[in-house]
Design a protein around this nucleic acid. Structure first.
Lengths: 167, 167
DNA sequence: CTAAACTTTCAAAAAATATTGAAAGTTTTA
DNA sequence: TAAAACTTTCAATATTTTTTGAAAGTTTAG
């Protein structure tokens, strides 16, 4: 297989994966090309490689920087900005997990906390509502601490947990 | 807080959470109302509670059934179909995790396997490509077995792993 | 069998999301 | 300081995704 073909497959698949996880396809694809680029790329190079406009490139690069997984690099003698991706996959996963927890899980936990104050009543509706939301809240907190653990953990320790014997 | 208000908050938040994870908002909201419903609901009841059309309700209910997290229930003496959600949150999470692994992670692992056959070369481009894709593949396999473990594990054992001391 | 009750499908419309490109803004060089 | 080099913004446009509703399909009761 030629590099060009492999690159294309990788970029496409990464974009599709991103899409199904609610991430803009262009954003995922920019990250893909930065991942496999041996050198930081300029906005022009990104635009050209993905056939996207300057505005699109700019906005999505910024979003990636906000996620903390792409960094601006200054090259001496060059005026334009260059960009590089975090290349350590473990670190990448940690950043994404931490960020998504903060943006998506935490607000839900806050909401569950809120709704637990629903007026007590003997109605089946209220009982069921409380029961379910409480169980989700409990699960959510466990998931949150697992993510916190993941964010701080050493890779080998973390994955090792699952391949060792019970007890 | 009144039940109506709490319900509304819960349904909205569940829909938003779904959206940010690439799941149709209506689909997530249908699941939300089924979760907190003490009894199975009919298509009519779902349409009314969420203000959505019959076609929309029908398609998204089917999608939820395909995910294995909503079930059709037959009520004796009733001609129409009723639906109920899996109420055990741990089981729900397992189903979703298993399904998403199958739909999203597995294809990426397959692609990575494919592109690892890229023609060898001493070019920096090929070297970097191989290095990164190999590291993603390695990580992906570890994530896959962790998910498989999660899918089979007992809840208390699984979460317990993270709260116990290292070593 | 047949008509009522109910479910499914899908083309068209609406809504949401992503993309463009050019103007405005900023920084650097000479 | 002027203008070239580069970046950012955002209204308009294009694309994708979701939703609708009515027609077609299916099942059940009588």
């Amino acid at each position: 297989m030629k590099l060009e073909e492999a690159r294309e497959q990788f970029i496409q698949a990464w974009g599709t994966l991103g899409s199904s996880w609610g991430i803009n396809k262009a954003m995922a694809q920019i990250q893909a090309i930065l991942l496999i680029a041996p050198e930081p790329l300029s906005t022009e190079e990104i635009m050209e490689q993905l056939n996207i406009s300057r505005g699109n490139a700019n906005m999505n690069i910024r979003a990636l920087i906000d996620w903390g997984i792409v960094h601006k690099v200054y090259k001496t003698g060059e005026r334009k900005d260059f960009f590089t991706s975090e290349k350590d996959i473990w670190e990448l996963a940690r950043r994404v997990a931490t960020e998504r927890k903060r943006r998506e899980l935490d607000p839900v936990l806050k909401m569950l906390q809120q709704v637990s104050k629903v007026d007590d009543s003997s109605s089946r509706e209220v009982k069921e509502f409380k029961k379910i939301t409480a169980s989700i809240e409990k699960f959510g907190h466990k998931a949150a601490s697992t993510l916190d653990m993941f964010a701080k953990a050493d890779q080998h320790w973390f994955f090792g947990l699952f391949t060792r014997k019970k007890r």
